[in-house]
């Protein structure tokens, strides 16, 4: 690392880009306080906090929120199990087609969401499967698995195999080794992967529009407001809430990943 100072122009451009990435979300927060129900007038014509209360009273919002939380929870649990199994298999043995597995896992996030969405929609329609809670969860789990897989596999690669061998040599069976050695080691990776998966699922809209049928998750509720705004101020409150509920787990997950790679860096 050279300790030269950055040219002023570069610093300004970098700060400008960061602002471009973050200020728009702050603007939504600003608009939660507008008394104006029908337009997005700026500067705000006044100041009110009543929309938070109004949003809390809305039964449709609560239903959507609960559905979204349930979907995200179940999809995350499925992703944790499937992603960890896949990571463990890829880590511990070299088998035919190992490279294709990573490719297969990445596919759901590499292809545009609409491809996955319409594909699942076709399958649901083709087999006359009724839309349900589970059709949403199955759709979400496809792209959540890879997040857990990546996090856990990276952690496995940093865990030394000698610890597992030592545990076995000292008489622990596989289950005890898993419980007392492997699990504590990958715990934060599971936490990070799980939180990312939760956040991804919680605000997913593209695949969900194809797998939800008549059900309304919170993102679908917002999506309906994008086309035909009826409850502008309430939408602002909901949007702010979604930012917070996805921001926090992602931020924590990034901190966990960053700090575990920091300790790794010290040994170099």
């Amino acid at each position: 690392m050279h300790s030269k100072k950055a040219p002023l122009g570069l610093t300004i451009a970098a700060i400008g880009t960061l602002l471009f990435l973050h200020v728009p979300m702050l603007i939504i927060f600003l608009y939660t306080f507008t008394p104006d129900e029908t337009t997005y007038t700026f500067p705000l014509p006044g100041f009110t906090t009543k929309w938070f209360g109004v949003a809390l009273q809305r039964a449709d919002l609560w239903r959507s929120l609960i559905l979204s939380l349930q979907v995200a929870t179940v999809a995350t649990i499925a992703a944790l199990i499937l992603g960890t199994l896949a990571a463990a298999a890829v880590y511990r043995s070299n088998f035919f087609g190992r490279e294709s597995i990573s490719f297969l896992l990445v596919l759901p996030i590499a292809l545009p969401g609409i491809v996955s969405g319409i594909a699942l929609r076709t399958a649901i329609g083709g087999f006359d499967i009724p839309f349900s809670f589970w059709t949403i969860v199955i759709g979400h789990a496809t792209f959540c698995v890879v997040v857990v897989y990546n996090n856990v596999l990276a952690r496995f690669r940093r865990t030394s195999a000698s610890m597992i061998e030592a545990s076995m040599d000292l008489g622990a069976n596989s289950f005890q080794t898993f419980r007392h050695v492997v699990l504590p080691n990958i715990a934060t990776a599971l936490l990070a992967g799980g939180m990312l998966a939760f956040a991804l699922s919680f605000d997913e809209v593209i695949v969900t529009t194809f797998t939800a049928g008549q059900q309304t998750t919170l993102p679908i509720w917002i999506f309906s407001q994008l086309n035909r705004p009826r409850d502008r101020p309430v939408t602002n409150v909901v949007a702010t809430f979604v930012i917070l509920i996805t921001f926090i787990p992602i931020f924590l997950a990034q901190r966990i990943s960053a700090s575990s790679s920091d300790t790794e860096g010290e040994n170099k």
Binding site: L21, M25, I27, E204, I222, F223, L226, A239, V242, I243
Partner: peptide, 17 residues
């Protein structure tokens, strides 16, 4: 972190903004 958070989060809300 400042770059990855918008990458992971709130796609829809970011459009809405």
């Amino acid at each position: 972190i400042g770059v990855t958070i918008p990458l992971w989060s709130s796609y829809l809300v970011r459009v809405y903004s």
